[in-house]
């Protein structure tokens, strides 16, 4: 109980925001109408993805310093979970775009940037598969991970701000937070971000523990 309070908190937050997000009051706005509810589901996916990737980079840096297998395992499982959140973010985004912009994938820097960032992290997994020897794999993929993270940030958050973009929060558009969210929405939104991030961390730790058990089973004593 003492250790699992954050898991219960995550469940309560996510369950609560799903109910409140679908049923709660939202401002009726021009064009957006009820689709503004997607902000409860789409944005938390990306937020948890970035946090998971950030955890992965921290453990990659730690691995280069310490050389412990555990750090490498945490790094790769954080990326695996992050990629799952990234795909869910893409899907919820495409669903919203189909209704608001009329097509699921308009040619937009924010969307293309996120697609390329996804490719980069898939390349990280391909790189891991290409290397046979475990220590070499851990080290080289850690290096690529650290190399890729700042470029991911540039792709998703900096480049779209410099150019014209349809996406809220880039290319001179205000975010939903500045313009469209009223004070009823804010607490639900923030608790959704925290809840989904905690769920992501939980999945990553479960996967990490599975890996540890697998490693132990494969060991010859």
């Amino acid at each position: 109980m003492r250790k699992s309070w954050w898991k219960i908190l995550a469940l309560i937050l996510v369950g609560g925001t799903i109910v409140a997000g679908l049923l709660g009051p939202v401002p009726s706005l021009f064009l957006l109408h009820e689709t503004i509810r997607n902000v409860y589901f789409h944005v938390p996916m990306w937020a948890s993805m970035v946090i998971l990737y950030f955890i992965s980079v921290i453990y990659s840096i730690k691995y280069l310093g310490s050389g412990k297998t555990e750090h490498d395992l945490i790094a790769v499982e954080a990326v695996n979970t992050g990629i799952m959140f990234c795909f869910m973010g893409l899907l919820t985004g495409m669903l919203w775009a189909n209704i608001t912009w009329g097509e699921p994938w308009p040619n937009d820097p924010k969307l293309n940037g996120s697609a390329i960032a996804t490719l980069m992290y898939l390349a990280y997994l391909v790189l891991r598969n290409a290397l046979e020897e475990e220590q070499k794999r851990a080290k080289i993929s850690a290096i690529y991970n650290i190399f890729a993270f700042p470029i991911m940030i540039v792709l998703i958050y900096i480049l779209p701000k410099l150019t014209d973009s349809l996406h809220p929060g880039s290319g001179g558009n205000g975010t939903f937070g500045d313009l469209d969210m009223n004070n009823n929405m804010r607490p639900i939104f923030y608790s959704a971000v925290i809840g989904w991030t905690l769920i992501g961390v939980w999945i990553a730790t479960l996967r990490y523990r599975l890996r540890l058990i697998e490693n132990k089973k494969n060991q010859i004593d």
Binding site: P109, G113, I116, A117, L119, M120, A123, V126, L127, A130, L131, K136, I140, I143, Y144, F147, A148, I151, V154, L155, L159
Partner: peptide, 25 residues
């Protein structure tokens, strides 16, 4: 990085294209 992984040319393309795209834009 790709020099460390034996099969060079595929890994080189896979790793470098996503990284170079923001610069290219």
């Amino acid at each position: 990085i790709s020099a460390k992984t034996g099969n060079n040319s595929t890994i080189m393309a896979v790793l470098s294209f996503p990284v170079i795209i923001p610069l290219l834009i």
